[in-house]
Amino acid sequence: MSDDPRRDAPDAPVPGEVPADAAAPAAEPAEGTAEATAKGTAESTAEEPAPARPRRRQSLVAASLIAVLTVLLGFAIAVQVRSTGTGGALDVAREEELVSILDDLDNREERLRAQIADQRGELRDLTDTDSRSAAALEAARSRADVLAVLNGTVAAEGPGLVMTISDPESRVRVADLLDAIQELRGAGAETMQIDGVRVGVSTAVTGGPGDLRIDGRPVSAPYEVVVIGSPADLRTAMSIPGGVVDAIGRQNGSVGIEQRDRVVVDALRPLDEPQYAQPDTD
């Protein structure tokens, strides 16, 4: 190589140093052995016979020390290479880079925090409206249930009466049946059916004795009236003097009243769609 001569110059101090290291041993071991062989006479002659064992031991110790050190060095190299390989780029980044990275991260964190706050607020709003609308829905639903029972669009059950009006001479008139219905309503009947026809708000009783119609559907004696309401109240209302029982009795009919803890009104009537009336939204 052409650069060798020039290389020699920088090399020069190093050899000077290493031999300096290496020159010392020439003296030092001599000292060591001199101590070991202090009983001996001259340094030069003492080195010949005795040194065999101490030097052997010494070299053993040195070899093991060297082995330990080199194992340590290899271990450290491997560990360092590993940790450098896995440590990511931050280990070797300069301070300024780290500062700018930190700034970026701070800004990002701030943005994300703001975003979190926004989303939290939105979530709260949504939950509020959700619970509000859920409550409104619940209210509307129970209202619809009530209205459906009153209108006769769903089957209903509860305590009440089963009342059987017999009419052996076909003399029960429209007015008698209407009286019975009104009387029951007055006593707190919530919904009822007569011979399988549901009675609603617009129910009409028509026809003549022996040929009664409810909402245009013929019913025949004995008329079975199923009513939901307070059984005792209803019964009392039927039995008052001059009331329904008396009126039917005057037509030579009879009324059988049966109080029950649970009756089922399962006849349905179609919902009357109002043709002209609109809900007043004000």
């Binding site: 330990v68 080199t70 194992v71 290899g74 450290a76 190299i77 491997a78």
Partner: peptide, 10 residues
């Protein structure tokens, strides 16, 4: 040998 062992250990 020591270097090799050390690297292997690491």
């Amino acid at each position: 040998l020591g270097l090799a062992v050390g690297i292997a250990l690491g």
